[in-house]
Structures are given as structure tokens and as C-alpha cells.
């Protein structure tokens, strides 16, 4: 297991945001944390990243307990929901920030930034500022910035929520492709079942701070284990989507 949560609990002022959360994601997998808004998905990402600490339970990365390790030492890249780009830095400086902090050499930084700009197809836009970019471009920059220091785990909080519905599907496929290309273990948060089913290898369904079910998209659709999962996931829609997806896949290849 690349990342594992064991019986994690977290409360804010008596409000239980995480209830006995346990799951694991194997190396190289792309997992989705799926649940309605307020179900505690962001809280889990923040705890994995070390921005919040659990009240009880363990967080393990590659089998080692990291509860007391500061976030910056956990080898994690995080893409925030609103990207949180450094608005007073250019795209290139945003991507370079993590490397500069690590005091990498100038040439190394430059090479890495160019490599990443190429990865996100924004080679010509390195000198722009975030406010000069479209939503989709901002998201790609956030993605590149998170990848720059070569993390072993990538976390993405609602990566498509702020994107135009029109290009959302396109960007979704793009992101999946890049993540597979880089080969990094990733967890992304979404409240959109379609997104989770289409993109993820495994889905963790959350409700009111607790894990309802874990499995592959098919698995969850075929055997919804609780009433909540049955209600939340629209099986017919999923089947239709899968057919469309297969057809499109054939057409593309």
C-alpha cells in the first residue's frame, strides 16, 4: 500500500468530520473519494497532506506512520480546489517554487520547469500571471506545480469543479492520461459520480464523514452495499456512460 488510513477520526468543535475512516490505495493507482458536499472528503485530503492532524487513528505512507511527520516531508503534491496558485508569481515561478525552496541548482530548476510546461502544453505561457489564464490553464499549472518536486503521492481536491462544463470531460481525460504517464499514485476528490466512475481505478464512497463502500467502479455499481450508495449512485446512468465510453475509446483507437 502506498497510502493507508487506519481508523482515522477527526472532529471540529464537536462536529465529526471523519468517522473511523479506513482505506488504502495501492501504488500507481488513481483513487476517487466520492461523496456529497460536506461528507468530509477535503478533511481527509488535508490530513493526508499534513495540513490537519487526526484526533485518533494512523496515516501510513509506504507502511510508515507519518502522523508526526510535517506535510512537507511526506512527499505529497496537492492541487487545491481553487488551485491556490501564487498570484504574484508567473506560471514558471509557480512551478519552480518548490524546487527553489529545496535549493536545487539553477539549471536543474530551469530544465524541470520546461519539462513540466511541456507536459501541460503551456510552453509559451511560462511568463504569464495566473490572472491572465483561463480556468483550465490554471488547473494545469496547479497540476504541474504539485508535480514539480517529484512527489510520491498526488492529491487533487475537486479538480474539475471550477471548470466549464463544456471542457470538463476533455480535461478529465487529459488529466487521467497525464497521471498514468507520470505513473504517480493519486487520490482525487469529487462529488460527481460520473467523474469518479469514468476516471478512477478505485472509488471510496463517503457519507457524513464515514466510508460507505470501497471498490472498483463496476463493483460498486453492481453491488451497492448500503442504502446510501444505492441512492447516491445512479446505476443506469453509469451503464449508459460506460457504453458511451467504450464506444468512444474504440473510435479514438
Amino acid at each position: 500500500m502506498q497510502i493507508e488510513m487506519r481508523h482515522v477520526n477527526k472532529a471540529f468543535d464537536g462536529f465529526h468530520a471523519s468517522r473511523d475512516v479506513s482505506f488504502g490505495v495501492e501504488s500507481g493507482r488513481l483513487a476517487a473519494l466520492l461523496g456529497p458536499s460536506g461528507s468530509g472528503k477535503t478533511t481527509i485530503l488535508r490530513m493526508i497532506a499534513g495540513l490537519d492532524s487526526p484526533d485518533s487513528g494512523d496515516i501510513l505512507i509506504k507502511g510508515e506512520r507519518v502522523n508526526n511527520l510535517p506535510g512537507s516531508k511526506r512527499g505529497i503534491g496537492l492541487v487545491f480546489q481553487n488551485y491556490a496558485l501564487f498570484r504574484y508569481m508567473t506560471v514558471a515561478d509557480n512551478i519552480a517554487f518548490g524546487l527553489k525552496v529545496q535549493k536545487k541548482g539553477k539549471h536543474e530548476i530551469k530544465a524541470r520547469v520546461e519539462e513540466l510546461l511541456e507536459l501541460i502544453s503551456m510552453k509559451e505561457l511560462g511568463r504569464r500571471y495566473p490572472y491572465q489564464l483561463s480556468g483550465g490553464q490554471r488547473q494545469r499549472v496547479a497540476f504541474a506545480r504539485a508535480l514539480a518536486p517529484n512527489p510520491q503521492l498526488l492529491l487533487l481536491d475537486e479538480p474539475f469543479a471550477a471548470i466549464d462544463a463544456k471542457i470538463r470531460r476533455e480535461l478529465r481525460r487529459w488529466l487521467k492520461e497525464k497521471i498514468e504517464m507520470v505513473g504517480i499514485t493519486s487520490i482525487f476528490v469529487t462529488h460527481d459520480q460520473e467523474e469518479a466512475m469514468e476516471v478512477a481505478d478505485m472509488v471510496i464512497v463517503m457519507n457524513e464523514g464515514a466510508v460507505e463502500q470501497i471498490g472498483t467502479p463496476e463493483n460498486i455499481c453492481r453491488n451497492p452495499r448500503t442504502g446510501f450508495v444505492k441512492d447516491f449512485i445512479d446505476v443506469e446512468r453509469f451503464e449508459a456512460l460506460r457504453l458511451i465510453g467504450k464506444k468512444r475509446y474504440k473510435e479514438n483507437s
Binding site: 506535510g71 516531508k73 501564487f86 525552496v101
Partner: peptide, 14 residues
Amino acid sequence: QGREEEEAAALMGA
């Protein structure tokens, strides 16, 4: 501004 930009920087070890 919120905290997120600062958190992003802190996560990178700043």
C-alpha cells in the same frame, strides 16, 4: 487571500 496559497507553499517546504 485565505490560507491556501500559504499552505501550498508550506507543503513544498517553505
